[in-house]
Amino acid sequence: MSGAQRGTARAAPTVAAATLAQRIPDGALLALAPDYSGCALAVVRELIRRPARGLRLLGVPQLGLQADLLIGAGCVAEVETAALSLGEHGLAPAFLRAATAGTIVIRDSTCPAIHAGLTAAERGVPFLPLCGVLGSDLVRWRKDWRVIDDPFPPGRPILLVPALRPDVALFHVERIDAAGNAWVGVRRELMTMAHAARTTLVSAEAASAENLLADATLAAGTLPGLYVTATAVVPHGAAPTGCGKLYPRDDAVYARYAERAATAGGFARFLDAWLAGDDVLAA
């Protein structure tokens, strides 16, 4: 993708993205998707511009670029996740700096524990049992987890994880409609996030003129507007992460970020360029 193309989708979508960002209060428990799912980067940019403070991020079940940007920009107080990295582009530099400096609280978890916590919340129960995991040092360190003897025979030890109820779930999808329905396809962790969260904010590439639930083929992969608090059309709103089959992750930007963000000064230059809407490859 050229720098010129990047520039074209800037002005109007910024306003739309800001309408969602303003609904995320400082200090919120904010559920975010991994880089391979649906990431609302344009909204994250508005959070950083504000700048948001004291956010508690929840990775569903892991996090990538958007979390590293938020952490590096000083918007984050806590992170609960199964992992935080740039995937093939390596470890997350701002996260590691903050971890070393002790400026964020890290609640290390594992993918199925996060899924179980969200599933408990979407079912309205206070906790869920989870098989496995016993023997991991995570169980020793997570004081909010419990190991009990299964009350049913044969009564083996089993892990309980408490419900995870995010204040806000934020993600990006290909399509929304006027009723607030959002098509997530097979990225159903987005649906789980929305079911579990008090507030769900969805940015989308485009608005569908038809109700997404009217078509049975689409309905199965559609999050009903029942769970959606607000939507905004933000073309290219996931970039530089990818958006389904519409556009892939921008590996050149990831590589540039990984290289730049290796130092705090380089991170700041990258962030300034990104916030200004300049070509980050030149940052």
Partner: peptide
């Protein structure tokens, strides 16, 4: 020594669970 790790990587992912099931 956790939690004051001298070097941190990405995280545990699903490993604690998958290894046991």
């Amino acid at each position: 020594p956790y939690p004051a790790l001298t070097r941190r990587f990405a995280g545990c992912f699903g490993a604690p669970f998958m290894a046991t099931v």
